[in-house]
Write a protein that binds this DNA or RNA. Structure first.
Length: 479
RNA sequence: CGGGGUAUAGCGCAGUUGGUAGCGCGCUUGUCUGGGGGGCAAGAGGUCAUGAGUUCAAGUCUCGUUACUCCGACCA
């Protein structure tokens, strides 16, 4: 450990002070900077590059499952927010309102969207008349504003970027299917693109979305054992469609309200991958979202032919669709090694006179720091994609092993506290009463995370109150 | 919103009983270097967060404000 720290400056010890480590990493690797307004962040090019890759991969999956993108306005009449009772209660405390334009007060306050259910429902009520208009499968990429009391880059900011899918369906079954299908899309994406193993399941009523009938989530376990809600999907039933008067004439000649879903992930995913994969050296980025997948570091650049060869390799890789950077700057090689490890670049390629003479490159993997490998130069184009797949899998398995070793099965309140205090999720039975959740929150800052789909019981009594219980649920501390 | 901490060069920090603004890294130029954060030499860079107050004199003392940060409360 002490040896490892020699390579890192100005990053807090990941084991001693995880929150500070996180802040140090996001700032020092230039993912973000703070904006001038409290709680806002600037997403810098290196951070935005990750978001662009996340968008690209997710958008592909949304299209494949039949969704189209649209864009709705960010200003919403205040009266819309009020239409769904639970919804307004949940969001009102944190919405930003526009009340004036210049010196003139507006006749109606405007909400800066904290989420878009209300305005989208209003539009849907105009667009849907017949069962032939269903299903409606629309997604939007947007920013939203929630004036949170405490903020942290990516994890909780006053404004953040996300996508929100909003769908209408003719039948309850179809809407329920959509809700679970999109949760599945998120889970697959988390695994194959972010290398993050997640816990999927249904939220308790206390934790569900304001206005939803049911909320499902994927929870990611961070290296401090806390849970980060990394994506949610909601089944609304007809709560919103009734509140917003969305009606269609069905084939049987009867006016009906369609069943509705919504689902979203945000820039918080970037926080998730930082805290899942990062280490004392800084970031460790999964290859499929890394803005730079491979960095080429020329050695002894002054010697003839070195930079030329490096340029040649770079062009070949770029042509093959690999996001590659050649760093021919004036820094020493050692400096570059540390810099790109901190920035989490998955593969580093060293190219010096010795390599060129032998027709090979020396390379290292960020997920296996310290080891060096070689391969023939001409193999790079075909081998790198395989390497990325292997790195992603290795990172996923490492995180999965961490998850598995940090879930403790519990049967009492004391065991929940013990498990959570030592950096674990607690898996146990729950009676379903809100009072038990309130008690956990008050006594030990623990919340229910979600109820896994595999409901094989691990007991028959509620961990909190000891009464009969038939719900298996994860307890934990959350970001 | 409550409690703690912080604010001095781009970054990280020192600045003693109040008395001419400092260090490291980074940056610029030159040179030798180059396979794990190089050496030497010469430079540039400051409204001490902000507003009042005390004082002959404030980076330093007092009060307010703001921002960041950590811990809570709140939080699809």
């Amino acid at each position: 450990m002490a040896k490892e720290k020699e390579f890192v400056k100005d990053i807090a010890d990941i084991h001693e002070n995880f929150p500070q480590w996180y802040t140090d990493v996001v700032l020092k690797t230039q993912l973000v900077d703070y904006g001038p307004v409290k709680g806002t962040m600037v997403i810098r090019p290196y951070g935005y590059g990750i978001w662009e890759n996340i968008q690209k991969e997710l958008d592909k999956r949304f299209k494949e499952t039949g969704h189209e993108n649209a864009y709705f306005p960010m200003f919403i009449p205040y009266s819309y927010l009020v239409k769904e009772a639970e919804h307004v209660e949940g969001f009102a405390p944190e919405v930003a309102l526009v009340t004036h334009v210049g010196d003139n007060e507006l006749p109606e306050k405007l909400v800066v969207r904290p989420t878009s259910e209300t305005i989208i429902c209003d539009m849907y009520s105009k667009w849907v008349q017949s069962y032939r208009d269903l299903p409606v499968l629309i997604n939007q990429w947007a920013n939203v504003v929630r004036w949170e009391k405490t903020t942290r880059p990516f994890l909780r900011t006053s404004e953040f970027l996300w996508q929100e899918g909003h769908t209408l369906h003719r039948t309850e079954e179809e809407a329920r299917e959509e809700t679970l299908k999109m949760l599945g899309v998120y889970e697959e994406f988390a695994k194959n693109i972010l290398a993050i193993p997640v816990f999927t399941g249904r939220k308790s009523d206390k934790e569900k979305f304001a206005g939803a009938r049911e909320t499902y989530s994927m929870e990611a376990m961070m290296q401090d054992g806390k849970s980060l809600q990394a994506g949610t999907t909601h089944f609304f039933g007809t709560n919103f469609s009734e509140a917003f008067n969305i009606k269609y004439l069905d084939s049987d000649g009867v006016q009906k309200s369609p069943y509705q879903t919504s689902w979203g992930v945000s820039t918080r995913l970037i926080g998730a991958l930082i805290m899942t994969h990062g280490d004392q050296r800084g970031l460790c980025l999964p290859p499929y979202v890394a803005p730079i997948q491979a960095v080429i570091i020329p050695i002894a650049m002054h010697k003839p032919g070195v930079v030329e060869k490096a340029e040649e390799v770079k062009s070949a890789l770029a042509k093959a669709g690999i996001r590659v950077k050649l760093d021919a700057s004036n820094q020493t090689p050692g400096w570059k090694f540390n810099e790109y490890e901190m920035k989490g670049v998955p593969v580093r390629i060293e190219l010096g006179p010795r390599d060129i003479e032998n027709g090979v490159v020396t390379y290292s993997r960020r997920d296996k720091v310290g080891e060096k490998f070689t391969m023939p130069i001409e193999d790079l184009v075909t081998e790198l994609p395989k390497l990325f797949a292997d790195i992603n899998e290795n990172m996923y398995n490492k995180a999965l092993a961490f998850n598995n070793s940090h879930v403790k099965t519990v049967s009492t309140k004391e065991e929940i506290k013990e498990a959570v205090d030592t950096g674990n999720f607690a898996l146990g039975m729950w009676c379903g009463d809100r009072a038990c959740e309130d008690l956990l929150k008050e006594e030990m800052q623990v919340t229910t995370r979600n109820m896994p789909f595999d409901q094989t019981p691990v007991g028959d009594k509620c961990c909190v109150c000891g009464k009969c219980a038939n719900k298996k649920i994860y307890f934990g501390r959350a970001y």
